[in-house]
Design a protein around this nucleic acid. Structure first.
Lengths: 241, 241
DNA sequence: TATTTATTGTCTAATATATAGACAATATTA
DNA sequence: TAATATTGTCTATATATTAGACAATAAATA
């Protein structure tokens, strides 16, 4: 991997992505554990090339991490406090990883590049968790789907970024029909309801939820799904084209 | 004025402000006519100092232009296409203003600084137009309140920025109580209704509008306002503290 | 001074939407 | 064949929105 400082990135501008998945009736967020001594967690992120649209950059970052393109993506907020930098994080990192001394010239350049203030554009993405094969980069020890309620403490303001992303998702999920990006292509009404319950962290009434969603007139009803359970088989639905 | 390239700004990041006022039953936007030959119009904007929060920068820009602080301000979108630069605008400017040749070294530096791609964070503000004394900068020939329906063609994507700001205003005006920032401290119900009609560009029913606003329970009813008109005098209202 | 006019504030009726309760349909198990 | 758990949908109720009506009233007019 090339050093970021040597690449043709826009200076002091980053993108942080909150990638939402849905599994075991809970919202999951894709987060990286960094490949250093110490317990450093971070959202997938990256930088914007000089000749690249910011939306394209967010897409590229997502594709690198998830392997899929054509993802639902929404820019939701810019994090731009004057004190927003990696200084504390990097210093802690170096303290715990003595081999990363900044004596060498190239390390010094990188140190300066990374420890400047960054303005970060937040994007959230909604993906079908079954289609994603999480990809780590050289900087990551591992990458995980973690229940949004069990997220570890992350570097800088990444926990705040997740909170703000969830807020935006809740606001937008009603007017747009984007929640269904989190499900597989076909799903039962109960699965849709459980997804909404996970997003809003509150229960919905079954009868009225079904009516509300069907009244949106955005779903096609397909064949029944025989699960083997001792009850009436539910219909499968799919987003209308 | 110092050259921007010599100041301690974050590179390639700008802020553009859509400052909404309300006058003659119409939304007005504060725009500058640039102080050059040619008909160049632009939104008030600026750059972010290295040690400055982006929200603070937006506030500073607004205060420079309007003379007032404590303004309602909302970050609404980031404009970041790869082709988003001043190149066409500046070249046109130089063609119409031969004295601005880029032969001199300092001009060349400025040219390079200004013609790079800029990522711009859009903010909109709501102000009481009576409290504002528009201030032009060295770059402006004049600064004007212009009816949002009569805006001239502006540089780069500034017309698009206004459209997006209006969209955001419409979405946010209901949940927040921010529309009243556009009125003077006290106002009649009819004035409030006319403001809403200007924002949404559609009529509201008088009886139901009054009920809806009063039910919000955010207004104090004050004394009556005797206008001299031959009819029942309306009450004045003020936002609750 | 009484009447007229235009507008305001608020009430009620009509309509639409949201929520809650009920029950038949049905895929499997006992 | 009956029992069970869940699904799909219906109806009744509650709530919210929209439309219509009318009295109150500040000033102008007769």
């Amino acid at each position: 991997m090339h050093n970021p400082s040597e690449q043709n990135f826009i200076q002091q501008l980053s993108i942080d992505c909150v990638i939402f998945g849905y599994h075991q009736k809970q919202l999951q967020v894709l987060v990286n554990k960094l490949n250093f001594n110490g317990n450093f967690w971070a959202l997938p992120g990256g930088f914007v090339f000089q000749n690249e649209d910011i939306d394209k950059a967010a897409n590229r970052i997502l594709q690198e991490r998830t392997g899929i393109s054509e993802i639902y993506l929404d820019q939701f907020y810019v994090f731009g406090n004057a004190t927003r930098n990696n200084l504390n994080f990097i210093d802690e990192l170096i303290a715990l990883n003595p081999h990363m001394s900044i004596d060498e010239k190239s390390n010094k350049v990188e140190y300066e590049w990374f420890t400047r203030r960054f303005i970060s554009i937040g994007y959230y993405a909604l993906v079908d968790i079954r289609k994603v094969v999480p990809q780590k980069t050289d900087l990551d020890e591992s990458i995980h789907w973690i229940n949004i309620k069990d997220l570890p403490s992350m570097i800088i303001d990444h926990n705040d970024i997740v909170l703000k992303a969830l807020e935006s998702l809740r606001v937008n999920v009603d007017e747009k029909r984007l929640a269904f990006n989190l499900l597989s292509e076909t799903f039962t009404m109960k699965e849709a309801q459980e997804l909404y319950e996970a997003i809003f962290d509150k229960p919905f009434a079954r009868n009225n939820f079904q009516k509300k969603i069907l009244d949106l007139d955005i779903l096609d009803r397909l064949e029944k799904k025989f699960t083997g359970a001792a009850n009436k088989a539910p219909f499968l639905y799919r987003l209308k084209k």
